[in-house]
Design a binder for these strands. Structure first.
Lengths: 245, 245
DNA sequence: CGGCGATGTTTTGCATTCATTTTTGTCTTT
DNA sequence: AAAGACAAAAATGAATGCAAAACATCGCCG
C-alpha cells in the first residue's frame, strides 16, 4: 500500500530519520527540516521548479505533506509559489542579498545589544576563547577553521541575547543567505580578512564593557562590511575576473 | 459539486473574496491571510484548539488547504502544532512578549538606521506632517487618533528603509504582538504618553539629521519603554487593579 | 462511592482521487 | 519552413477516503 513501490528501488530515503527517542518529531517537522536543508544545500538550481513527484519518492511520502512543507518554505522566502505553475527555488537577486545582509546586520546588532544586558562573565570568557582560536587560524591563514570560529562567535552572541524569537528569526534569515555560495576564494579579499579580525576585537571589547549601544553599531557595521565584501566578490565573479580595480 | 452544501446554509464565507482583477490571489494566499486575520483579531481564545472542521465550513473549503495554512501559521509562531493533537492558538507568555517587543525594537532600530541612509526630504516632510497631526491628537487627548498616527509614523519609517525583507519580518512580528489586547485604558499611563511624544520628537530630529546610529538607539529605547508600559499595564490587569503604586 | 479499564466516537495525519490548468508534441496552414 | 492551432500528456490544486491516534462515555471492580 505504500507509494514506495512506484518505481521499484527508487527509494533511498536520504533523510527522514524517525528518531522518536526524545523529541516528538511529527513527520511534518522532519520533512520540513529535511526539505529546507535539501534546498539550502543547493540540490536544486536557482529558479528551478521543485519537482513534487520526485521529492515524494525521494523522501518516501505522498504529496500532501510535501506540499504543506512547500507552503511553509514559501512563507520563509526560500521558494516562491506561482499559481498553477508550482514552486520554484527563489533566486536571490543582488537586491535580495542587500536586504538580507542588512536585516541580518540589524538582528546581530540587536543580539549584541541584548547580550550586553545579560551575558555572564563565563560566557564572555568562552567567546574570548573561541576568538583566540580564531586568531590562531587567522595567523595560520586557515580559512576553514577561521570561518567556523567566526560563525560560532556570532551564534554565541545571538544565543547570549536570551531571546528565542530573535534566534528563530536570525536562523531563518541566515538560512536564506546561506544559499549563496561564497565560493571559497575569499583569499582574494585578504585585506578584508584583517579588517574583519579588527572588527571582532572591537566586538569583544564592547561586549566586555557591556557597551550595548556601541556593540550594536559595531555589529551592524561589521555585517555591512561583510556585505560589501560579498557584493564585491559576487560582482567580480559574474563580471570579468581580472579587473580587480 | 461544491462542498458548500454540507450543512445547508452554514456558509457565510466571511472573507475569501476572490478578487481576480489585478493580483493572482491563489486560494492558498487568500485563505492564509484570512485565517491569520481571523486569529489575530482574537476570534479564538488563547490556547484554544483550532477547530478544523468548523473553519472549513466557515471558509467554504476542504481540510487540505486549511491544514496547509495552519502549518504556515505555526511556522510564523501564531499557533502551535501538537503532534496528533491538532493546532492550538499560541498563548503569549510574559516572556514571549518581552522577546517580541525586543525583536520589534531591533527591527525598528534597523529601520531607522536604514531610513537615514536613503529617505528623501519629501518623505521626512510627510512624516513630520503626521507627527504634527499626532501632536494635535495628543493635546486633545484623543487616544484613538494619536494611536493611528503613531502607527503610521512607525510604518512609514519601516517603509522608508527600502527593505522588503525587513518589512515582511517586521509585519510578522507586529502581527504576533497585535494579538494581545492593550485594553484601551492606556489613559492610566498618562505620564508615558508625554514621554512617548518626547521620544517621537527625538526620532524626527535624528531622522532630519540623518543620524542613523543615533536614531537606531532612540528607536530601540522607544520600543523598550513601550514594552515596559505594556508590561506594567499587563501586570496591573492580571494583578489587582487598584495598586497604581 | 471512587478509581480504572474497555469500547465507541471524534479527530488527526496522510494517501489517494478528481477536476483544471499548464505544458508538450504534432499537425496543419500559409 | 515557420507560425499557429489542436490534442495528448503531465502537473497542479483541492476534495475525499482511510488507518491510527486521541478523546469521551460507560461499565466494572475495588
Amino acid at each position: 500500500m505504500t507509494n514506495i513501490a512506484l518505481d521499484a528501488e527508487t527509494i533511498e530515503s536520504p533523510s527522514l530519520r524517525r528518531e522518536d527517542g526524545a523529541g516528538q518529531t511529527s513527520l511534518h517537522g522532519e520533512l520540513l527540516a529535511a526539505l529546507r536543508d535539501y534546498i539550502v544545500e543547493g540540490n536544486l538550481a536557482d529558479g528551478a521548479r521543485v519537482p513534487e513527484r520526485l521529492l515524494c519518492n525521494r523522501f518516501g511520502i505522498s504529496r500532501t505533506p510535501l506540499r504543506e512543507a512547500l507552503k511553509v518554505l514559501a512563507a520563509e522566502g526560500l521558494i516562491e509559489l506561482l499559481p498553477n505553475r508550482g514552486a520554484r527555488v527563489r533566486a536571490l537577486s543582488a537586491d535580495d542579498l542587500r536586504e538580507l545582509f542588512d536585516v541580518m546586520g540589524g538582528l546581530e546588532a540587536l543580539a549584541g545589544r541584548l547580550a550586553c544586558e545579560r551575558i555572564s562573565d563565563e560566557d564572555i570568557a568562552e567567546i574570548e576563547q573561541i576568538h583566540h582560536e580564531m586568531y590562531r587560524f587567522y595567523l595560520r591563514r586557515d580559512m576553514h577553521g577561521y570561518f567556523q570560529c567566526n560563525q560560532d562567535i556570532h551564534r554565541m552572541i545571538v544565543a547570549a541575547a536570551g531571546n528565542a524569537t530573535l534566534s528563530a528569526t536570525y536562523n531563518s534569515i541566515a538560512g536564506r543567505i546561506r544559499r549563496v555560495r561564497y565560493s571559497a576564494n575569499l583569499d582574494k579579499e585578504r585585506d578584508r580578512w584583517g579588517e574583519a579580525m579588527r572588527e571582532h576585537e572591537a566586538i569583544l571589547d564592547a561586549l566586555r564593557r557591556r557597551a550595548g549601544s556601541e556593540l550594536s553599531d559595531i555589529m551592524f557595521l561589521h555585517l555591512r562590511n561583510k556585505r560589501k565584501a560579498a557584493q564585491h566578490q559576487s560582482a567580480a565573479q559574474t563580471g570579468d575576473e581580472s579587473s580587480s580595480t
